[in-house]
């Protein structure tokens, strides 16, 4: 998928040293890059720093950008690779897919009977982040690119420099792991068969 002609013009201008053109690129893609970094790293400060680094790397490697590819895909691949490296360097005790969760069971529903919309949104976002944080970096990146950016398996494989089958397998295992980490009792209590419900 090629980029918008306007984006290609900005890229060309930025290559010629026009920093205003690069500022347009930053404005156009800052939310996409920031959201990816935030979902990967789980902290706003880290996400901001990672987004800065991703744009900086993009600018310094602009000559390598292949205009036949989507600029957004290229930019997100820089950001996701940087975040994966950063997570690996952190050397924290990440929970791998094979580990048992050490925190209390994650609940997707709030106990507040009438929560404010903003509070609900924050709780929802925090619950999702807590679940994402239990995945290893490669699995997390696949889930984020699939659900937040609606990328196909082929596009995710392109971004992560891997095969479609590897992406499919990672997404399969990531969903399975996330499902296993949802509070089994709550899940059973509200258990319905969605396929039957829709038919």
């Amino acid at each position: 998928m090629m980029s918008d002609p306007t984006v290609l013009e900005w890229v060309q201008a930025a290559l010629n040293g026009d920093q205003d053109a690069f500022a347009e690129i930053v404005h156009a893609y800052q939310d996409a890059v920031y959201n990816l970094c935030y979902r990967m790293l789980g902290e706003r400060g880290d996400a901001e720093d990672a987004a800065q680094e991703a744009f900086l790397r993009a600018y310094l490697n602009l000559k390598r950008y292949d205009t036949a590819r989507s600029f957004k895909t290229w930019l997100l691949s820089i950001a996701s690779n940087y975040c994966i490296d950063r997570l690996r360097r952190r050397r924290l005790s990440w929970l791998s897919l094979d580990d048992e969760p050490t925190e209390t069971s994650l609940s997707l529903a709030s106990d507040d009977p009438e929560p404010e919309p903003l509070t609900l949104r924050r709780e929802h976002s925090a619950a999702i982040q807590a679940l994402l944080n239990t995945l290893s970096p490669d699995y997390r990146a696949v889930v984020i690119l699939r659900y937040w950016y609606d990328y196909s398996y082929a596009e995710i494989a392109d971004i992560m420099d891997t095969t479609e089958s590897a992406v499919k397998s990672r997404l399969f295992r990531a969903r399975q792991a996330l499902a296993d980490r949802i509070d089994p009792q709550r899940a059973a209590a509200s258990s319905i068969n969605p396929l039957l419900e829709t038919t």
């Binding site: 890059v33 959201n35 987004a51 997707l108 619950a127 999702i128 679940l131 659900y147 969903r175 949802i182």
Partner: peptide, 15 residues
Amino acid sequence: RVDDMLRSAPFEQAP
């Protein structure tokens, strides 16, 4: 539930 939750996940805006 995981799928629905991820599909409805909010998109974080850059500061």
